[in-house]
């Protein structure tokens, strides 16, 4: 369990807006090991989203190194980055980003369409397995507009699982959901983390969510200002029980 999945060393990222240089990241060091459930926290403008984009191989650092599962991404070109995303990463977005008018099953299958080593039968089997893992096997033929927000996010989580990534990157994944549904999603993430050993990086600005993870990395002004281990592990399922009854969906 000591295998390093994410290794960020003195990473800097500058943006150029006209003549002005914005230093979004000013030398960040992060290490995330296999099986960790890490929350990246910070106010808006703290650089946490920029960090997530770089971690997700959607953007490249200006300087410094980033190794994902031992692969240094600064030497890769656009197509190789795309392949890396396809094989090693799973994304969960705040706004779900499901394809409309497309069944849950097909949405989950999508990443595998871009992997030519997976045939159509295997693609379907893996998508069904991923939907089972998020508890939506009975909804696989539903369209996104026939699903609640929480269910849509579960489909998105299934999509992030289907390629068996080394890390799942969640960007404010509960930002559009009510408290109860948020805890339900977190319960799912916790289960994936503890039962299946999935490594998860969860970007959030809500402390309530952050305390459900195992470690918090706090950003401010482009730097990691604090890292703290969550000693007392809180279970989302316990929090759910404490919520008043009657406002749940489904």
């Amino acid at each position: 369990m000591n295998h390093l999945i994410i290794e960020v060393d003195n990473l800097k990222k500058d943006f150029y807006v006209g003549d002005v240089t914005v230093r979004a990241l000013k030398g960040v060091n992060i290490q995330i090991r296999k099986g960790e459930f890490v929350a990246i926290m910070g106010a808006s403008g703290s650089g946490k989203s920029t960090m997530l984009n770089i971690l997700g191989c959607l953007d490249k650092p200006t300087s410094g190194s980033y190794k994902l599962d031992g692969i240094s991404i600064s030497e890769l070109n656009k197509n190789e980055l795309a392949e890396l995303r396809n094989h090693k990463l799973g994304f969960v977005f705040q706004s779900y980003n499901l394809l409309s008018r497309t069944s849950a099953l097909e949405n989950v299958e999508l990443p595998l369409f871009y992997n030519s080593s997976v045939n159509s039968r295997e693609r379907k089997e893996r998508a069904i397995a991923a939907l089972e893992a998020v508890g939506l096997a009975d909804r696989m033929h539903h369209m996104p507009n026939q699903l609640s927000g929480g269910q849509q996010q579960r489909v998105a989580i299934a999509r992030s699982l289907v390629n068996d990534p080394v890390v799942i990157l969640a960007d404010e994944a509960t930002g559009n959901l009510d408290t109860r549904t948020s805890f339900e999603i977190l319960e799912l993430f916790q289960r994936l983390n503890t039962d299946e050993g999935k490594t998860i990086v969860f970007v959030t600005h809500e402390p309530d969510i952050a305390r459900l993870t195992s470690r918090n990395i706090i950003f401010r002004d482009g730097l990691v200002i604090k890292e703290l281990l969550v000693n007392e592990k809180v279970l989302a399922s316990d929090l759910l029980k404490s919520l008043p009854i009657g406002d749940h969906e489904n």
Partner: peptide, 16 residues
């Protein structure tokens, strides 16, 4: 465009 962004984030290459 968002669909394109999604496809790229899950591993679609520009040429795909």
């Amino acid at each position: 465009t968002r669909e394109i962004g999604l496809r790229m984030s899950i591993g679609g290459k520009g040429r795909d």
